[in-house]
């Protein structure tokens, strides 16, 4: 697993799912479809990627294409780095 994917999955597992055994979904699993995160959590994720990867996320970036799975979010981060 690429480290950005691992970091994002780890962050969600620890801070949103409070999971003991890592991220329990496939990395391509849709957050929306699976109810993995809610709208408050999206804002947490925005802050997480902004702080960790030094990127700026605008309101208009927060769309399913960029955000709706660990994989998509990692790709989005890479595209902005």
């Amino acid at each position: 697993m690429d480290s950005i994917e691992a970091d994002i999955a780890g962050y969600i597992a620890e801070n949103i799912l409070f999971s003991d055994n890592g991220y329990p979904y496939p990395l391509a699993a849709s957050f929306l479809e699976n109810g993995i995160i809610d709208s408050m959590n999206v804002l947490e994720l925005v802050m997480f990627v902004e702080e960790n990867y030094g990127i700026k996320v605008s309101d208009n970036d927060i769309i399913p294409d960029n955000f709706d799975s660990v994989e998509r979010l990692a790709n989005f981060v890479r595209s902005r780095q």
């Binding site: 957050f31 929306l32 479809e33 995160i37 809610d38 709208s39 999206v42 309101d59 208009n60 970036d61 927060i62 769309i63 399913p64 955000f67 709706d68």
Partner: peptide, 11 residues
């Protein structure tokens, strides 16, 4: 599916 992505809804 919800208001997870406000910009998407506006679009």
């Amino acid at each position: 599916k919800g208001f997870l992505y406000p910009a998407h809804i506006l679009k």
